[in-house]
């Protein structure tokens, strides 16, 4: 038997990257900013979006793409606030890929928008790996989860352009050490801005939305 080795060096994310690039082109042409919100299930991503509607609506004309494995519940919650929202169902996959986002984007009234907010599938691992053509990944961590999550899931927190610490109204009821948590974030991303927010009380939303506006 004659064996031989064939050296290849072929990028395996090429197909996803191609669609992400198409999306970037489209967004640039339409002058739209797209952000990709990533956090675990139950960390408060959809509630965060509901809370953002008022402040964000003062500055941007925006639409929401909701990623989930099943159900259209989240898109219905956003649509109930008179915001254009589409549900992207992955049918089992743990993350959104660039092609699905690209097609969903093309179905939005892009000429009437300044911003698209994508809520990725609830997961701290896989969504961080897939470029969907966004301008920025935003990591969401709630204070009910544990201070060390940024060190345990370093890719997301390293890639994030901003970190949102949600549900801070619950802090008086928890043993959550906020400084320890911020240390864990700094270990993997020393300069990322961190916003402490509560969708229940509205705390921190003005600062977070201002940051979005300044970095659009």
């Amino acid at each position: 038997m004659t064996k031989a080795n064939v050296r290849v060096y072929k990028d395996l994310m090429g197909e996803n990257e191609k669609w992400a690039e198409e999306t970037r082109k489209l967004l640039k042409e339409k002058n739209i900013v797209m952000i990709n919100i990533i956090g675990s299930p139950g960390c408060g991503k959809t509630t965060l979006l509901e809370g953002m509607v008022g402040e964000l609506g003062k500055i941007f004309r925006f639409a929401v793409l909701e990623g989930d494995v099943e159900t259209t519940a989240d898109a219905e919650r956003i649509a109930a606030l008179n915001i254009e929202a589409s549900q992207l169902l992955t049918g089992g996959a743990c993350h959104l890929e660039a092609k699905l986002v690209h097609y969903a984007l093309k179905d939005l009234p892009l000429d009437d928008l300044d911003m698209v907010v994508v809520e990725n599938v609830g997961n701290l691992v896989c969504p961080a790996e897939f470029d969907i053509g966004e301008k920025a990944k935003i990591a969401v961590l709630s204070v009910t989860e544990g201070e060390d999550k940024p060190s345990k899931y370093p890719l997301l927190f390293h890639e994030a352009e901003a970190v949102l610490l949600t549900k801070i109204d619950l802090l008086p009821h928890l043993d959550f050490d906020i400084d320890l948590c911020l240390d864990h974030v700094r270990k993997v991303n020393s300069t990322v801005p961190i916003f402490k927010v509560s969708a229940k009380t509205g705390e921190g939303f003005v600062e977070w939305i201002n940051w979005l506006n300044e970095n659009r």
Binding site: T2, A4, N5, V6, V8, Y9, K10, D11, R186, S190
Partner: peptide, 21 residues
């Protein structure tokens, strides 16, 4: 220092094929 430039961690490529001729 935290002023590091990271590299290599995101690699994902097909490197080599071992074939029988």
């Amino acid at each position: 220092s935290s002023g590091l430039k990271l590299d290599g961690g995101m690699s994902l490529y097909l490197d080599n094929l071992e074939i029988e001729k």
